[in-house]
Amino acid sequence: MVTNITSFGRSGLSDWLMQRASAVIMALYTVFIVAFLLFNPNLDYYAWSGLFNQTWMRIFSLLAFIALAAHAWVGLWTVTTDYLKSTRLRVGAQSVIILGIFVYLVWGIQILWGA
């Protein structure tokens, strides 16, 4: 057993499962948005903001953001452990990535529920 403390779920199995579950959520979200755009060819601001004013859409969107954040963490963590062999560089990169994901996530929540 190889130990690690910076992976998303501390377990390969949970990371692997998370990667797949988050991918499914993101895929559903993408399909929904694309379908919405197709069915509303003359989309304007009111229709768009009307969609995002509904609670279920906010929850769905938040779920998709969280899925994206988790997916990115697992994926980029893997990339750093594959290619960055210097510990200092790798931990640095991982910190930047985690910070970035955190910022984007909070920003996304703010957009959804703010104002």
């Binding site: 057993m1 190889v2 130990t3 690690n4 992976s7 377990s11 390969g12 199995l13 990371d15 692997w16 893997t78 452990t81």
Partner: peptide
């Protein structure tokens, strides 16, 4: 084997 490296890499 359940860690992120042994199998899941």
């Amino acid at each position: 084997l359940e860690d992120p490296f042994s199998v899941f890499r």
